[in-house]
Nucleic acid binder design. Sequence first.
DNA 1: GTGAAAGCGCTAACAT
DNA 2: ATGTTAGCGCTTTCAC
Lengths: 325, 325
Amino acid sequence: MRRPAKRVTSADVARAAGVSAATVSYVLNDTPGQSIPEETRRRVLEAVKQLDYRPRGSARALAAGRSDVVLLSIPHLSIGPGINRFVEQFATSLAHAGLTLVTHLAGAPGRPLPDVCAAIDASVVASLDPLDDDTAQALRRAGADLVFTTEVEAHPTMRRMGRLQAEHLIALGHRRLGYAMPDHPLLRKIADDRLLGVADACAHAGIDPPLALDTKLDTTALARAARRWRRESVTAVCAYNDEVAIALLTGMRHAKLAAPDDLAVIGADDIPLAQVTDPPLSTIAFDLEKVGRSLAEAVVASLSGRKPRLTPASLSPRVIHRAST
Amino acid sequence: MRRPAKRVTSADVARAAGVSAATVSYVLNDTPGQSIPEETRRRVLEAVKQLDYRPRGSARALAAGRSDVVLLSIPHLSIGPGINRFVEQFATSLAHAGLTLVTHLAGAPGRPLPDVCAAIDASVVASLDPLDDDTAQALRRAGADLVFTTEVEAHPTMRRMGRLQAEHLIALGHRRLGYAMPDHPLLRKIADDRLLGVADACAHAGIDPPLALDTKLDTTALARAARRWRRESVTAVCAYNDEVAIALLTGMRHAKLAAPDDLAVIGADDIPLAQVTDPPLSTIAFDLEKVGRSLAEAVVASLSGRKPRLTPASLSPRVIHRAST
DNA sequence: GTGAAAGCGCTAACAT
DNA sequence: ATGTTAGCGCTTTCAC
């Protein structure tokens, strides 16, 4: 383990600018209650650029008692291609607030979240899925604030998406709906939310609750499910997401069933492939960037001591109508 | 900005165990050249567990001159669902070596990589795509070692995958191949590698080089491409990846072309949906976990001063033969 | 075998 | 308006 080469420190900058290290700190942090003349500030900034100085997070965190690092815990299942858009927006919004985002894939047999949090000395841990109590407590003891998407609009939005799926189908005249559940256990919670929304819409329309069937990503199994729905006079099915919907479309073709005439199908999440199925897949899109922005707000709020206000604003889920319904 | 509650420190552990902070450090780090009697070690570890003590990364990094944090930079494009498996394995292998992994989505308008690196004081930055010189230099000045997947087997493997696609098709009797390029510019580099592999196989078999066509995820465009290939007597096409292949299959259906008889199609990456297309998609799978393991080895090697040895071992790409060919 | 003490690079009181 | 100083929590030499 060789020691790494010497790095530029704030003392170097101070020397180059002909000021003290404290002044460098004041300038770089816009420390409130300090009046730095323009000229001094300029010289410091100049030296910073000249030397390509970057404050060391560890030293900053140690001295200040808190870092500007936010750790995002992502569940280790494939949440779909949209996740990137969310993370990107989250990172960008945090950056505006002077915060740095890094992410960690949860559930892996690697390091437990609290260890990672302690290792990078994160001030805030944001999580897409709720943490168990032990973890949450350990995190808090490690000095981190906790923020969850469930605290913003994600949770009700999932339900709203199911509702939109069903309402779309019902508006088209369908009176008996099916629901295609995903097989991955980790998807279960979201699926239950979405299914609830479908049930809401059915109840509201005064029709039977949806006939939910477990599915696998397997053509034969899906063909069987399709036949089963038909037998039970289901004329349209809401799929948990586009992936399940696409698989169902293929299963139907195997069962010699056509969409939307024999069975209408609607997906959710609007993945790129939904546009190139046969027939093109109707689906529900929603504003992932908005989740990122709201979550960042919650983080900033939590850091400034306020309880994050629960933005009741919606993620604008909306129906994308294509030929499959 | 309230100061966070007081956290457990190594001094607390020391007090609880009736030893000095130095001893705690020795025990926790298995410091070489220190012989701690079993009894003392036990007492320290006991106290650690009792207090749920976790060393603060920032203090450790500051004192030791290097952290145990590895930062992985992931390109901000959708690399496909396989990426999670890779990251997970990477994190796990690093954890075995006592290292902590966090990831950062590159290319976002958030923080530049060197800033993130400095903020968390990473010892190593691993990247899936090559970094530009300025970034690389800044990173090194920030005290980080650099490791790339291109240094392990990923690069030649991409080429090998193209080769396997083509060889499979050629073995089936095809003498004129097409190649479906992805439209996202960031995918270009990988696509070029894969296409090179296809060309290799063609040359080796003594047939014409592949007819590469740019594609979009659009049924009409893909239908047009399919007709074009047919006109040019292409009988089989290698798609950049499964997503493109799936879209092509739909385009073909629109053009009243059947796979594999009118045009055989083979994908790459073996995403879950490849099993549920109609017809099921032949594709190339490869061992993503192995990439994770090798990259972790490279990281450890780099940290111990050795130049990472380039594992020539292959990622075991292999053909998954299904009905689309 | 263990502890005391110096410092890592920075921030935040306190001086000036 | 800026410098001086005292730590933040840990590691690491050096004494004992």
